[in-house]
Structures are given as C-alpha cells and as structure tokens.
C-alpha cells in the first residue's frame, strides 16, 4: 500500500509564544520548531503499516524552507521519500484549513496514494480540519480520531475513538483519508543509521498555485488569554512554596 503522510511543522510546544507586534501572528524570532505530535503518530502508523504489509511511505509538508527539517526527520524514521509543498506567508500557517488542504491536495493528486494519514489536529492552530477538508476536496471518504488501522482488500477498517471511553469500527473503501489520534502506537526514535540514510533520500519541491482556495477565516488579533480564576501565585524557595500551599489548602481552601 502506498501511504502519504501529511506532517506539519509547529513551534516547539514547551516554549513560550508571544504575539508579534502586528498582533496578527506570533513573534517568530528565536522560535524553534518540531513535528506536530499528532502527525508524528500518523507517521508512526504509516511506518507500521508498511512494515507489516509492504508498500511505500511518502511524507509531505507544506510551508517555508524550514519545514524540510520535519521531512528529514520523517525520512530518518523510515519514510521512503518526501515532498515539500512550498508555501510562504499566511497560507503556510494553517490558520485557514481550506488553504492548508489545497496545498496538500496538489501532492496527493500527483502521488495518487491508496491512503492518506495525518494527525487529527495541529498543536499550533488546532483547527482539526485539514485532513477532513483534504478528503472532501479529493472526493475521498474519511474517518477521524483513528486509533487503529486494519488494511483490507481495497478497503481499510479503522477503529475510531468516540467520547467517554467509547470506540467504533468503520470500514472505508480506498483511497481514503484517516486522521490519527495521538497514542495510536508507541513513537519510534530515528536511529543513527536512519539519520544517515535520510541524507541520501529525496525531498522533492512542489510549487502550487492557490488561486482563491480560502475558507474565509481571518485572524483579526492575538492576545494572552483571560484568566478564569484569580490565581494566587506562591513565591519563594520550593520549601517556602510548599509550606505556603499546604497552609492555604488547609485553612483557606479547606480541602485537606
């Protein structure tokens, strides 16, 4: 089975982000980037499908030059090839899922895979729509929140996570798009050999004309979130913080 995995490069999740002076995106100076975690799980699922059933895994990412580093990472983990869909500016941010899906669609149409996997949402813009909109644009069936994948004859049976601890199996004809839930399988690390091998693998660059493929969402401003509760911050050394907290929990909140 030929599988295309769409991965997004996002700002590293452990680092603080600040609005840019324009208020229309974040300040990018000094940011470091990583592979969007749900996409890392989609890649893991694709690599396992290839290991058990054969085929090819092609990683694709849309964005500026820097996204090539997540493609290298995918190649180092075992993807066979990669496609970099060149995109700059607002279209590359993924704020508008229709634009994001249109960029990826170009790669899918060229590659004609049996299956497209991607994470269920991104850690930065979090619209959770790109995979579903991609399927709609391709005219392919889709399923979301997938936690297990069983390939079949011309079809795929996916286990979907529902809310409140429920699950459901759904069978789709191929080609199809699945969006993968975090935790589908334990993530692998790239081996030294893998990293070495990745250097010789191909990253093809694809230029795409977007032509009005926009879903109409416009970011008008970014701000620090409002606090819901008045947080009392406890200062001092760890021992002082601990002693203040225990006192507050006992006498103020009365929960001990």
């Amino acid at each position: 089975m030929k599988i295309l995995v769409a991965v997004k490069q996002v700002p590293a999740r452990d680092l603080p982000v600040e609005p840019a002076p324009s208020g229309l995106w974040i300040a990018e100076a000094g940011l470091s980037y990583e592979m969007n975690e749900p996409d890392a799980y989609a890649l893991e699922a694709a690599l396992r499908l290839k290991e058990s059933g054969g085929g090819e895994v092609v990683a694709v990412s849309a964005g500026p030059e820097r996204v090539q580093s997540v493609l290298r990472e995918a190649l180092a983990k075992g993807a066979d090839r990669a496609i970099h869909v060149a995109a700059e500016g607002e279209a590359a941010l993924g704020l508008d899922p229709v634009a994001a899906a249109a960029l990826l669609e170009a790669a899918v149409r060229e590659e004609q895979p049996d299956l497209v996997l991607t994470g269920l949402q991104s850690d930065d813009t979090g619209t959770g729509q790109t995979g579903v909109v991609l399927a709609a644009r391709l005219g392919w069936p889709h399923a979301t929140l997938v936690v297990a994948i069983e390939p079949g004859q011309g079809a795929v049976r996916a286990r979907r996570e529902l809310e409140g601890g429920w699950f459901q199996h759904v069978t789709l004809p191929l080609p199809a798009v699945l969006t993968v839930q975090s935790g589908i399988a334990r993530l692998r690390y790239a081996t030294l050999m893998g990293i070495k091998r990745a250097k010789t693998k191909e990253i093809r660059r694809l230029e795409v004309e977007l032509e009005g493929s926009r879903g109409g969402l416009r970011l008008a401003g970014l701000a620090q979130p409002r606090r819901v509760r008045q947080t009392q911050f406890l200062e001092g050394s760890a021992a002082e913080q601990a002693s203040k907290l225990v006192e507050k929990l006992r006498f103020e909140a009365r929960v001990l």
């Binding site: 947080t231 911050f233 021992a239």
Partner: peptide, 28 residues
C-alpha cells in the same frame, strides 16, 4: 512555564520545578 494555560484556571499556582516542589510538598 509561567505562561502555561493551566494557570488561567488554577486557584493556586507555583511556577517552579516540580522535582523540587513535589518533594517539598511531601515533606511538608
């Protein structure tokens, strides 16, 4: 991370290393 969104809903916040704070809490 003082910017962590968990602090938006917290009543009491400790910005610090949990590997220092948790042992101190257990001790306390």
């Amino acid at each position: 991370d003082p910017q962590a969104p968990i602090f938006e809903i917290a009543d009491y916040g400790i910005v610090g290393d949990l590997f220092e704070v948790a042992p101190a809490l257990i001790e306390e």
